[in-house]
Design a binder for these strands. Sequence first.
RNA 1: GGAGAAAUGGCAGAGUGGUCGAAUGCGGCAGUCUUGAAAACUGUUGAGGGUCACACCUCCGGGGGUUCGAAUCCCUCUUUCUCCGCCA
Length: 423
Amino acid sequence: MLQVSDIRENSEDIIKRLAIRNINAKPIINDVLDFDEQRRQMQTQLDATKAEMNALSKEIGNLFKSGQADKANALKVKTSELKDTIKSVEQALNDKALALQDMLYKIPNVPNVLVPEGNSDEDNLETLRDGEIPQLHDGALPHWDLAKKYDIIDFELGNKIAGAGFPVYKGKGARLQRALIAYFLDKNTDAGYTEYQLPHVVNEASGIGTGQLPDKEGQMYHITADDLYLIPTAEVPGTNIFRDVILNESDLPIGITGYTPCFRREAGSYGAHVRGLNRLHQFDKVEIIRVEHPSKSYEALDGMVAHVQDILKELELPYRILRLCGGDLTFASALTYDFEVFSAAQERWLEVSSVSNFETFQSNRLKLRFKNADGKNELAHTLNGSSLALPRILASILENYQTEAGIRIPEVLKPYTGFDIIN
RNA sequence: GGAGAAAUGGCAGAGUGGUCGAAUGCGGCAGUCUUGAAAACUGUUGAGGGUCACACCUCCGGGGGUUCGAAUCCCUCUUUCUCCGCCA
């Protein structure tokens, strides 16, 4: 959520930069300015009326105490009119404030100057490409066939138990998945992130805090009986650790990491590009989250990108980094880098990580602040990224590391798997 | 799931209708003293809105109500604790 004070001061600039997302924000920004102006007028009126009421009440109290009950009762008559005014202005103010908030909820974050123009993923800017694309032997298979051949992932069984998009991992497949989780967590904690185990459900306030609610509730599984949501990413419980928190400046930066399953409804998309592990309703992910001083957040973003890069290098997977264009940027992000690995049998790039700086967009909703050098509360910046998402990494390992003798295990994972080939 | 108790500032803890944004202690910060530190002493120390700055308004778990006036009374929700039951 953008800050009203920012919109007041820089409305022209904000409109210009939102145009990079291909939206014409002028009407809604003008509405925000109007509503804000009206809201503040009402607030001033309400404050003045309340001040009058308070003074009157005090006077009445004093009169009663000094035994002048008749004078006090005479004053009481005057209060009822003030009371009515307070009630009606208060109601109008609340309505206005809610309407203003609804508007603000609908405005996406302002893109950073580095965000390229564009409409779709085709306009994303490739900033780096690294790693060897392996030459596969004749008869190499896509991962869904490998999964069946070596009996390590059972999609049909998942269908039976839960439905499409809920695969069952078995034997060495399950072990490889667990190895990846442990390896990722170790890499993250070695880089200074503190490991957390977080709830896999969140309440409504948390969903609002990170921007999934309102409006995007369709993407989350909703447990209506208890009004809880299955998390679509550890970002939601992880970032909400800091909801309504005022940190000391010396607490920054904060880095946390956590493994969670992620649940996404993502209804209405079927076909070859979502086959196998490419897109699921439940998948595993290890997330990194940072809380940063505003002056350091872009440096931190670069650090996160370098960190994820390091992991992909160690796994010896061919990858590329994309700077997302305005049309592809998520609602809350100011700047996002996507990581894609090349899955050699499908011959496709698969997104395995998305690293973003949200600046104050989330912290404004969360009320996540720190006391700055002047002793004032200032919104912190939040960032997060996948480090890493499991299924597509697993898919690319299966495909890229396949040989006629079986699927080799990347060197760094061997201590975690305890075996060096799936055959 | 049943019965009872409670929720106040960073923490502990007073406060049952007005002078309470809230005693007191601890902690934090600044100062005095000291070569330095500790101790002691003095001062200061919640958040949000609003203002050039003041004024002023709001907040004692959340929401609603009674009253001229609510931390204090009433209703409701949530959470925590104790006892009982169940349980990985």
